[in-house]
Amino acid sequence: MSGEVYRDRIIISNDTRFLSLAREFIARMIRVSEINKVDESKIILAVDEAVTNIIEHGYESQKDGTIEMEIEAAPDIFRVVIRDSGKEFDPNSIKDPDMTDHVKKGKKKGLGIFLMRQIMDEVKYVFKEGVQNELILVKHLKKPGGAAPGPKV
């Protein structure tokens, strides 16, 4: 990839059986981007967590919903926009979990948003009244000066 911007999108049904399809789509777009191997698996995980949340919480028992994923892979940014028409849900309203407490109470859920925040540089949520939820996950690949971003501290 040398300066090109790639865009693609897919629409999947609201069912966990299609998570593998979502992951394959992300992997395909990562392959045309400049994302390194270390970040590749983490970004796939972050998107899986976002889509899983929509299936399990956004749509709950509703079975006929769809989830649209749109990706822009540019030299300096990898942007994933996920749209659904399920229940309004702002992931930024959820606090990071206390893992010791999580284990103590035997809680199995509620970790996806924490992972999304750990992995991505930006997690933005937009609710469009009567239309849909839009979740935007961004990974910056280069700083404005051109240097690759260092590891998160």
Binding site: L45, D48, E49, T52, H102, V103, G106, K107, K108, K109, L111, G112, F114, L115
Partner: peptide, 9 residues
Amino acid sequence: SSAGAGVFI
């Protein structure tokens, strides 16, 4: 994913 890790947690 976290759903899988959640089983062990």
